[in-house]
Design a protein around this nucleic acid. Structure first.
Lengths: 214, 214
DNA sequence: GTTGAAATTAGTACGAA
DNA sequence: TTCGTACTAATTTCAAC
């Protein structure tokens, strides 16, 4: 129930939905905006805030839900208050061709809140919430390390979560500046770049001393 | 509204709540479990699923909300369907003593879904959702790089989000094995370890060739 | 903390624009 | 499609236990 479904943005291998589904208009977006801020708002109040009739709101609401644009409604819990005060990120190097096993094992680890496959130096990043630092250590060394598919891990701790937005929507983005043709410098990214690790270092800035703590 | 409040797990510098607030019992946890899976369930249905009366459910529900254990209710939106098909992680090195400015600038960037301050090689990790790869590139090179507080960035793309759990609770964790005293090997983590980067490499495994793509 | 009522609100169905 | 209304079912509130 917690595994995501379909497509390279969420799949476990299950092929994504073929049809294009709903074509979202401005009103759909407005509904999503309201709902991501207040997932428990009544459809009547939603209709009012969006500026449509109750009946239309019900129709659109149901369509968004049925079409999977809205995946679920959830309560955001303060994990510290709930007893899980430590959050860590574990970067995992996965043994080639053991991805399926890796995914299967992850599904068995309920303390993992998030897992994404990434480009770059590591293969995956997982986020875990635990009661204390020792529990993170135990999880990484005893449970993650014992998965044959896991070749290596690297753990960092989260000191502070600065922001967490319910869900980002295109309407949040500033109106994309007209696809300008850059005058000379700052060329757009090469089309065929292998989505690897991009690196930027402040202009004329040595890359020495790039390590510190907060 | 999207900034998190209070305490080293969520603050922008605002001191955290002093009081201990609610003492959560098993029923509170059960309520949280239900609510994170279905944030729109009625309190009446919630009461039934948890096995308490409606009135109690209302009381506890309100208490959890008022106390901040439940921070908000939100709709999980399929960002791909919503038009933001690309997700990237940007690891940021922040210039010392410019954290405040860094946070302020981040608050101005609605395309940032998540930002956490971390230990390890980098100082912060931010997650962004954009319409395409070029937009990520533009964001990183034009907007992030123009923040004086940002010394350097490193970007990786998310190829697949394997799992995303609404919220992990202690009840998800397997019953913690009694705080065993390890026989000899595998000592618990040194108490005073600076929460830095922990690294694990599979036993007797060279650390060569640790790079691949999925 | 529980039960059982009243008052309010939500969800549905329908015809009309 | 969307809207407006009326109808039914459910939820929330509030009382007493």
């Amino acid at each position: 129930m917690t595994e995501m479904s379909g497509g390279p943005s969420s799949g476990t291998g299950v092929p994504g939905r073929i049809g294009i589904g709903l074509q979202l208009d401005a009103i759909h977006m407005k509904i999503l905006e309201v709902l991501r801020e207040n997932g428990r708002i009544s459809v009547a109040a939603l209709a009012e805030r969006v500026g449509i009739s109750r009946a239309s709101a019900y129709t659109r609401f149901e369509a968004l839900r049925a079409d999977g644009v809205i995946k679920r409604f959830t309560a955001e819990v303060d994990h510290v208050r709930a007893g899980l005060g430590i959050t860590a990120l574990v970067f995992v190097t996965v043994r080639q061709q053991m991805w399926k096993q890796f995914r299967a094992q992850l599904a068995q680890m309920p303390e993992v809140e998030y897992c994404a496959i990434t480009t770059g130096q590591h293969d995956a990043m997982i986020q875990v919430r635990m009661a204390d630092v020792a529990a993170v250590h135990a999880l990484v060394t005893e449970r993650l390390a014992s998965i044959p598919a896991v070749k290596a891990t690297e753990t960092v701790f989260i000191l502070d979560e600065v922001l967490k937005r319910p869900y980002v929507l295109p309407s949040d983005h500033r109106p994309r500046q007209a696809p300008r043709r850059p005058p000379a410098a700052d060329p757009p990214p090469p089309a065929g770049v292998p989505l690897g690790k991009m690196r930027f270092v402040g202009a004329a800035e040595g890359r020495a001393d790039m390590r510190r703590q907060t």
